[in-house]
Structure formats: C-alpha cells, structure tokens
C-alpha cells in the first residue's frame, strides 16, 4: 500500500506561443512549473485548482501523453521521462486517462464496442469474438448492460458516456488512471453514482488514481492526498484530512472558504472567510516572486521578489510559501 508508484521531480511542461509580427517573438507559457509529487500504490491523489492552473497539463505530462519540457518522472522505479517508442508504449498501457468532456472523448461515429476495444486492438491481437467478450466484461464492470455494445455515443446520457470512457481506461488493466474532472459535466445525482463506481473499481483492481478536480467537496470525500495548484505550480500538498483541517497556504484557505456548502455543520469545517482580490495574472507573463502574490492578502515584501521555497510543515505536509519558511 505504501509503496511508491510514481514520483516526479522538477517536472515542467512549457508551451511555446509565437507572438509579435511574423511570430518572431516566442512567449513561454509555463503550464506546469517544477512539480514535485509522489503517488503511492493504491491511493488517490487529488489535484485541485482553478481552471487554467495546469491540472490537466500536469496529469497528461505525468503519464507521458505530453512530453515533459524538463524534470524527471519515475514509474515503479523506472525513469520514464525520456523513454520513447516501444518502451514508452510499454509503460503507457499501465497509465490511462479519463477525460473531462465525455462527448469529446468518444468518437461519435464509433459504436461502444469499437470505442472500448480500441486499446485492446492496438495492444493485443484478439480474435473478434474474444474481443467482444472482453468488452462485455468491461461494460459489466462499469455497470452498463451488454446491449450497449452496438450503441453510438449520441444515444447515451452524459453519465453513461463517462462510464464508457472509464471502461476504455480499464481495458488494459492499468495501474494508474488520471481522472480529469470526470464528473464536472454531470449532475450531482449522477456524479455520486460515478464516484461510487470509481471507488469500487479502485478497491477491486488495486488501482491508483490521480483525481483532477476543482470541486473541493468531492476531493475531500474521495482522495487520500491533495495537491493544490495555482498558475502552474503546486502551492501546497498534504494528506487530504490534514489539508482540510489545517490549510496553510493563503490560496488553499481562500479556495476552501469559497466552497458553496449546504449545511451548518459544513460551515465548521471550512476556514474563516477570505476573499481574494484581483484576478489570476495571465500565464504568459507571470510576475516575479510568488505566483500568488498579486492576489494574496498576507503578502510580504519578499513575496514579490523571491520564489517561495518548499517548507515541510509536518508529516507529509508541504507548502510553498514564504510565511512558513
């Protein structure tokens, strides 16, 4: 349980945008900047943060859908940051992804059978009947009836589409699944069902999840550890319970205090109100110093000058903030 499955060190993913006349200038967008993370076997690591904070990019870079710009990734002890070709393909089958937009994730012109069997067809050479049997099994795992085999995505509800996406991610018996806001397009009544399904699958197949979300109430309920991102950087990471009990980074506190809650009991869990001022700066020109400084109510002179150092503030609790160094 406590074995390390994946570890990243100084992982960066930059996007380069041409700008200026004739695209002479190149602007750098640091979508993910020096991310240090550890993912243990069988746990759920949540990545939270507002849209544009780099959660999706980090998830995709960790499982090598994107090629990292810098940094290191270890998967079960093997360094996979720079592997290519067949070696990469070998690792990739153990790392799958479920996408945020269930409609875009499924080819509208393919049947459920074709969609779920794609990983099987690219990795294994199964005869048609076996393929169909295996897909039926997968459908059963995600609690869909077998007669969905020949349906097209447009005949499915959003929740059912997401189940198909999950079945496809499960096809190759992965070890790690990146779940990119899998329920953000769904209604709460359906979300609860999908979350229950994911939890059951995790137990049954000893899966490890990287769960990306902007919904802290969900994260609180399903994750073991949480990393908070802001503008491409991880600002705080801790065991989820610790993080909710004693959030340290001002941004984490602001995020927690902004959760729309539905009962008085919940009120007690969240920290005192913090209202953020201003807007997220453009990721194309982030000011020097701490990324969060422009919106932070507790900023000190040093925050606008130097990047905040990493501070270990307790058991497995890390924060990147000058106040704690």
């Amino acid at each position: 349980m406590n074995q390390l499955l994946m570890k990243t060190e100084g992982l960066c993913k930059y996007f380069f945008r041409d700008s200026g006349l004739l695209g002479r200038e190149q602007k750098v967008l640091k979508a993910v900047d020096t991310a240090d993370l550890e993912v243990k076997h069988g746990e759920t690591l949540a990545l939270v943060g507002e849209s544009g904070s780099g959660k999706t990019t980090l998830g995709k870079t960790m499982i090598r859908i994107y090629k990292p710009t810098k940094g290191k990734i270890w998967f079960e002890g093997d360094e996979i940051c720079s592997v290519e070709g067949d070696r990469l393909r070998h690792y990739r089958r153990y790392m799958q992804m479920v996408f945020q937009d269930p409609t875009s994730a499924l080819n509208p012109r393919k049947t459920v059978l074709d969609i779920i069997s794609l990983p099987l067809r690219t990795y294994q050479n199964l005869p048609r009947t076996e393929l169909r049997e295996r897909v039926k099994e997968l459908l059963e795992m995600v609690e869909l009836p077998p007669d969905f085999l020949y349906r097209y995505p447009h005949a499915l509800s959003a929740g059912q589409k997401q189940r198909v996406g999950i079945a496809r991610a499960l096809a190759l018996n992965p070890k790690l699944i990146v779940l990119d806001e899998p329920t953000s397009a769904l209604d709460v009544s359906v979300q609860a069902k999908i979350l229950a399904l994911l939890e059951r699958l995790r137990r049954e197949f000893q899966l490890t999840y990287i769960y990306i979300s902007h919904d802290l109430s969900v994260v609180k309920n399903i994750s073991d550890r949480t990393a908070v991102m802001y503008l491409g950087q991880i600002v705080e990471s801790a065991l989820t319970d610790n993080l909710f009990e004693s959030p340290l980074h001002p941004y984490t506190r602001a995020l927690l205090s902004a959760i729309p809650i539905i009962s008085a009991e919940e009120q007690e869990v969240i920290p005192e109100e913090i209202t953020l001022v201003g807007e997220i700066p453009s990721p194309l020109d982030v000011p020097p110093g701490c990324n969060f400084a422009s919106r932070c109510q507790e900023k000190m002179p040093i925050c606008e000058a130097d990047e905040p150092p990493l501070a270990k503030v307790g058991n497995d609790h890390y924060v990147w903030c000058h106040r704690y160094s």
Partner: peptide
C-alpha cells in the same frame, strides 16, 4: 432529498446519487 444526499459534503457524510435520468 435525493438531490441533497447526492452532494458530497465536507463533513465526509455518505452521499448517494439518484438512479436513472
């Protein structure tokens, strides 16, 4: 009731969805 109990809560109480659509 179904809607309310579908919402994940910070108190960690159990949440369950509504069948169907």
């Amino acid at each position: 009731s179904g809607l309310i109990s579908s919402i994940p809560k910070l108190t960690g109480d159990e949440f369950k969805g509504i069948d169907g659509r």
